[in-house]
Computed example of a mutant assay.
Amino acid sequence: MMLDLRDPVCMSILLEGEWEPWLSGYFLNAVKPGMTVLDIGAHSGYFSLLAGMRTGPTGKVHAFEPNPFHHRNLIKSATLNGFGHVKLHQVMVSDKRGETFMRTRGEGGTSIFYPDLVELNGVTETRVKLGLLTDYLDPSLKADVIKIDIDGGEPYIMDSLLQIVDRNDKMIVFMEYLPILWEQTDPVPYMRQLASRGFQIFNVPRAGAIEPTTPDELAKFNGIVHLDLLLVR
């Protein structure tokens, strides 16, 4: 895996040999040979590469990552591993098409910068493509596992996500949940829509067993450290 050591996630992968181990194990168990996996917010490609390894060449992995530096490294990583079934989309998935500026900090490998929460030096703006999630997927696509980690952009993909959900049966979704980044959007109605479509919702803690939860219980969450949710149908 190609890693940019200026990026804290990449540095952690190098030092620890893994990323978010409390989540990685469940992800590896969920992905089976021949499955189709969507990695929405692929970053440097850790989960995309795990998915590519587990699905094998009979499966398909769609990785979505707007950051051009991470996209280049992800292409190299997939090529080095012979993962021709990992398809990369350099786009910021949203509820509209066009272009926008992604604000990042540092050089090369970067992390999303939250201008409303912190003040940092060395902020740069990169023009990136905006697009609908469904624009990049065949209308007949059957997704088995979806991982979502887009740092507050979740509200903008929910309509597209529900379209994909509605044309599938069994499905597993991993989603980072931090409502403080959802701006003025209330996440609870979306979580209720997913629950009404037959998903059981679990919190995956950093230590210990997974815990069942509900949209109403999630409505009470106001932490500044994200939850990792596992949704199973």
Rank of each mutant, 00 (worst) to 15 (best):
H70Y: 03
K32P: 01
R192F: 12
T55A: 03
R105H: 10
D228R: 15
F113A: 00
A219H: 11
Y156D: 07
T213F: 11
V232M: 07
L231S: 09
P215L: 04
H89F: 13
M158E: 07
G84H: 07
F113N: 00
D144F: 06
A209L: 11
P187V: 01
T214Y: 08
T79D: 01
V118L: 04
L49R: 04
I172Q: 13
S160L: 10
L23E: 08
G109P: 02
G84Y: 09
L49K: 03
H85I: 00
K87E: 08
F83S: 00
M191G: 02
L23I: 10
Q90V: 11
G82L: 04
M102D: 13
S111T: 13
L14G: 08
P179M: 05
Y177S: 02
K96H: 05
H89C: 05
N29D: 15
A42M: 06
V91N: 07
I224Q: 06
T58R: 13
V165P: 03
V145W: 09
K60Q: 08
G131H: 00
E107R: 15
V91M: 07
P179Y: 03
M1F: 11
L137Y: 07
E99D: 01
A30H: 09
Y114L: 10
V165L: 10
L117H: 02
H62L: 03
I172S: 11
T55V: 15
T213A: 07
C10W: 01
Q193H: 08
K170M: 04
H43E: 06
M2R: 05
L15E: 14
K170N: 14
P139K: 15
T36M: 14
D138S: 10
K87D: 05
Q200C: 12
G152P: 10
P155L: 07
R192K: 15
L88C: 02
V128N: 09
E16H: 09
T36W: 12
D169C: 12
F64G: 10
L194E: 11
L15M: 10
M102I: 11
H85R: 02
D135Q: 12
I75L: 06
V61A: 01
I75C: 04
M158N: 08
G131N: 02
L230E: 14
V232I: 15
A143D: 15
L178V: 06
T36I: 15
V118E: 04
L14R: 15
A195E: 15
T124F: 04
T213K: 14
M158Q: 11
S12Q: 13
K147Y: 08
T134V: 11
Y136P: 02
G45S: 03
L38R: 14
I75K: 01
L3W: 10
I40M: 03
N203H: 13
I180H: 07
L74A: 00
T36K: 14
D166C: 07
A207H: 14
L88G: 11
E99P: 00
